[in-house]
Design a binder for these strands. Structure first.
Lengths: 231, 231
DNA sequence: TGTCCATCTTGATATATGTCAAAATACGCC
DNA sequence: GGCGTATTTTGACATATATCAAGATGGACA
């Protein structure tokens, strides 16, 4: 049976599409069974040949691009239900690298078979396009953040984004567990780790949040939103 | 005859795909004829309903996202042969706005018909995916630039990018005509216009470039590349 | 051709964030 | 449970870039 992974793709690939039972089965048939990655394991590296997209089933990954001189830029933190690897379709080689931030499970989606299937199933085709477009919109949001927001605004936006995605996974809007270090947050937000740390402390001093190592409680969502929207 | 726009999409949509004559004709049939936009005209605005992608035939556009408080972030400068509007597939509403920077011609590509056709023509399907993926890669490059490069590195990267695209259009690698103001460059690069101006002056003082208003000559491509790669 | 307005340059100064350094805290491992 | 290492916090200081303010330049248009 190839239904090993039947719930891994549900969130992202099936549920929103409204496929018939038969179509569902064809999609499931395409999906290779889950693979487990330990914290620090690479899902792929820059320059790796592209064959498959991956749907995160559990755990979390970060993606990053590396500069020649060693500088790195974290380009995303990925959570369950999200699709990873879209950057590589363009050249058939990965242009960034993805690594697990904790023990994680992933489903492999061979891309050429996904393309075949989406030729037969228009709603799947449309959904695939939407996933790619959503990634473009997400990236543009980060460009806005990096290009025109100040340190504390960026951090507020980051916390609210985590909160939102927590909610999307049926978890608390206010209790966050950071899976990443201050250094990684800084890289993602274009800040130094000390700046991230100071901003968190400042937020705490203002009663906006409660920080305890990597668990953060958002005490005043409304004010955080004001910071991001129109500060 | 619906071949009004037969060369507009060639660069981006047909040439690289290797379609048969018949497939070509079907693609051409789909394309609405060219429309002209004057400098400052909107191709679309944030919130507009999405129906079509657009292929730029001549001229140039900028895209930008607006913040609630009026801040803007320029997210791209688009040249002939490039496809605009991919952000809107995701929600069926545009999440940014696009406006002409000079008098420009554009071909409309109704998206649902493009999807239909790409179900029939696998190489077109693949090409559409590549275009979307390329946009994701481009955006990640800008994230790297905004998140981890300094002002002069950003500007060098910007100039080299323009140079490259000039070459792709059969134009000079070293003689650039900027279509955008220092203010717009600054917005794109996450800098203030004064910083852009100073950096240009500094480059000129160093013998890297020759600036005269909006025409720039790149005098030392190699050193510009070093700045971006491993400064 | 000359005037006007937008754009651009340049200088002086302010400020946000980076850098360097040390101490404090948290966490994995024995 | 305690030790050692990695991470985080905090402080003092440095610096890149922003801000404010004149002028200078260039292009559109009469």
């Amino acid at each position: 049976m190839k239904v090993a992974c039947s719930d891994c793709h549900l969130r992202e690939l099936c549920l929103p599409v409204g496929l018939s039972d038969g179509e569902m089965q064809r999609l499931e048939a395409l999906i290779n069974s889950k693979r487990v990655y330990a914290a620090g394991d690479y899902l792929y590296r820059t320059g790796d040949r592209f064959r498959s997209l991956h749907a995160i089933h559990s755990g979390s990954f970060k993606t990053r691009v590396l500069h020649d001189d060693g500088r790195e830029q974290v380009t995303g933190f990925l959570m369950p239900g999200e699709i990873i690897g879209l950057d590589a379709i363009c050249t058939e080689f990965h242009t960034c690298e993805a690594l697990a931030m904790e023990s994680s499970e992933v489903c492999e989606l061979p891309f050429s078979r996904l393309e075949e299937l989406s030729r037969d199933i228009p709603s799947l085709q449309r959904h695939l396009h939407k996933i790619m477009s959503r990634e473009i919109v997400r990236d543009q949001g980060i460009m806005l953040l990096l290009g025109s927001m100040r340190a504390e605004e960026r951090l507020a936006a980051f916390l609210l984004n985590l909160s939102q995605r927590n909610v999307a996974h049926g978890m608390s809007a206010t209790r966050l567990t950071l899976r990443m270090s201050r250094l990684e947050i800084g890289s993602y937000l274009g800040l130094k780790l000390e700046t991230v740390s100071r901003a968190l402390s400042h937020f705490q001093g203002d009663g906006l949040i409660q920080v305890k190592a990597r668990s953060v409680e958002l005490l005043d969502l409304a004010r955080l939103r004001v910071m991001v929207g129109k500060s």
